[in-house]
Design a protein around this nucleic acid. Sequence first.
DNA 1: CGACAATACATCGTTGTCGATGTATTGCGT
DNA 2: ACGCAATACATCGACAACGATGTATTGTCG
Lengths: 184, 184
Amino acid sequence: MRHNAVMLELAILGFLHDAPLHGYELRKRIAALTGHVKPVAESTLYPAIKRLEKAGLLARRTQPGAGAAPRHVLTLTPEGQAELRRRLAHPADVDITDENRWFTVLAFLRHLDDPPAQAEVLERRMAFLRQPSSFFYEGDRPLRAEEVEDPFRRGILTIARATGQAELSWLRRTLDTLRAATDD
Amino acid sequence: MRHNAVMLELAILGFLHDAPLHGYELRKRIAALTGHVKPVAESTLYPAIKRLEKAGLLARRTQPGAGAAPRHVLTLTPEGQAELRRRLAHPADVDITDENRWFTVLAFLRHLDDPPAQAEVLERRMAFLRQPSSFFYEGDRPLRAEEVEDPFRRGILTIARATGQAELSWLRRTLDTLRAATDD
DNA sequence: CGACAATACATCGTTGTCGATGTATTGCGT
DNA sequence: ACGCAATACATCGACAACGATGTATTGTCG
């Protein structure tokens, strides 16, 4: 399965878990979620829907369209719900490390509906954020922010550090409440 | 030109602007820059090098390999340098909005070597960060962070806000110094 | 001495992505 | 009356990405 596809499919499954939708509405919700960062083309969405339908993860009912062409209202099948949970519980490494994908996972993580499993996913992100990332090297030696002359490269390090801190503190808070919920 | 390709090619051109390198070394530098977030496969890099060579943006000299197979040492041609500057001065919208691509642009923005043009690029990023992004909707109404029940979705909003603030303050500082440099 | 990692590149087939284009309807502005 | 935007979906071709696999050499560890 190609990489972006995974996230697009996750978004489709995730939105359909909330409520049955037709393709056009799905498109708008996906645009709201990730569109300002990286828009998804129509000609990418519809084939993705077909793939999922072919795999038995969703079913379509054709309705006379209010407005224009007939709508295909899409519903998650039980297999689709199981697959959604499977994907949320065990995201690929890239889905943890790439911010865009991570946000997509987060957007639907509540569907996992299992605090310990949710905590496990958050912990993977935490482990990733904690390992010191070095963007630039001089030979083999990683350069620290202070050693980087270029202001733009320093910016990368400054921003990465600040955002890492912000997310880590959110992760710690959320993990605490998740664990508290489990201990009851 | 496909989307990811743009960024990979920018990284190749950017690294070669610093110094001639062979493919394998290029691969390692790219891995250091973006690999922890989203690794690039070997079988993606070598075709990209070929594309750029075919377009006359870089030249290769074959050297007897210290270690293994003969090395192809890659050098930027004058057209390659011009193209690098062109791409840095006028990145596509996605390169501004997608954090991964934006970081790649930042990593090489110094090669633009023209403070007003650099400031222009930073301003585009600033404009993007300032426009309020709403990830979730209830019908047509965008939901604010406080209205979102789901803790994970709240996390997205919390993190996005914090990182946006951090980056904005860096942008303001850097733009000030860029403008001060221009006023001399 | 033999295995294995690292160096260094290349090719191939599958699959996803995207822009372009097409079709058809409703409704709004002018 | 006419066009244009929005709704709603579909197809096609070009191309990039990637995993798998191959080739060949040097250095290292046990």
